[in-house]
Amino acid sequence: MKNLLKIISVFSIMAITVLLISNQHKTISEFTPSDNVADVLNHLGQPYPDHYISDFDSTDIKRGYDLIHVGKTNPPKGFSSSNISKFYTCTSCHNTVREDPTLTEVNQDERLKYAISKDLPYLQGTTFWGAVNRETWYNDDYVLKYGSLVEKAEKSLKESIQLCAQVCSQGRKLQDWEMKSILAYLWSLQMQVTDLEMSFEELDHLNKLSQKNEKDSAISYLKSFYLTKSPATFTDTPKNYNKGYNLKGRPEMGKAIYELGCQHCHHAYGESDLVLDNSKLTFKWLEKNIDTHTHKSIYEIIRKGTYSEMGHKEYMPLYTLEKMSHQQVEDLRAYVEQESK
């Protein structure tokens, strides 16, 4: 299913490019569901962001797709680029499709149910879908914890991409053509007005605000239909690992987290050396270590992640509270304990 989706994505690039190019710099007299959100905002007086590009084509998008999904591609000159990272691709931590049914709030359970219905990985990173429409990136507690390391990246998508390539992915700096290719691909994943699921009356109200030249109000109104940033809250492990977060776990939800989250990287030849299969032996090992204050405990690994070390660059990023709730951690624990018996 996932391979099929990738194939469909590749064959969709040409169609997407035609749509994007046709929408570039067009005069909008009345906003419609097929309009790009960035174009509507620009028409209302908000400048295009610094990461906006218009001089790209289907080849650029295809290269960007390869760089994000595979880690390398065919450059403008030469046969093949080197891998951005020896350890990860962007999709190790990020989806490239919509992952939230509601764009105006953070709701972990709804996101998980959506992932189940669409067979999507349940990951630590925010999806690249709509990334060009956000206004800040490494947000909130990333800034508080990492300070100057993420200072430039917080307000720059280009700096965020470079930071992720060099530090988060333990890789190298991107060349200019690679940055352009990645941005071209990300712009092919931008939001359209239809994605905001505005009613006819709401879209009509937006148009009336524009016609009355109430541009600021129109901009604020449009942005009320989606989050302009992905919130990030680092949270503590429970004080007592035996008691956990004192929430009753739901094994059926934990199963989905295990399969769509844990096993996304923890599989044979995956990003991690630790393989988490469906054997009773694996579940017994996980259950045994729940109460240990080491990286073998699900509480430690989910809330703190691990660090890159000499000789072992691979590490696991933490799940922020927005990406996995306390309830969902207990759901995972409940599933592990159920399967270990």
Rank of each mutant, 00 (worst) to 15 (best):
F11C: 05
F11H: 10
S22E: 15
K26N: 07
S29F: 13
P33L: 10
D39A: 01
H51G: 05
Y52M: 05
D57S: 00
K62S: 10
R63T: 04
Y65A: 00
L67C: 03
T73D: 08
G78T: 09
T91W: 07
H94E: 01
V106L: 09
A115Y: 14
L120Y: 13
A131V: 11
V132L: 00
R134A: 05
K145Q: 13
E151P: 00
E154F: 04
Q162N: 08
L163C: 07
G171F: 13
K173S: 03
K173C: 06
I182C: 01
I182K: 00
L186S: 06
V193T: 14
D195K: 00
Q211R: 08
S217F: 14
A218D: 04
Y221Q: 03
L222S: 02
L227Y: 04
K229N: 13
Y241C: 05
Y245N: 02
G249F: 02
I257G: 04
I257R: 02
L260W: 04
G261N: 05
C262L: 09
C265V: 09
H267D: 03
G270H: 05
D277L: 00
S279V: 05
W285C: 14
I290E: 13
G305P: 02
Y307S: 08
L318S: 10
K323G: 06
S340I: 04
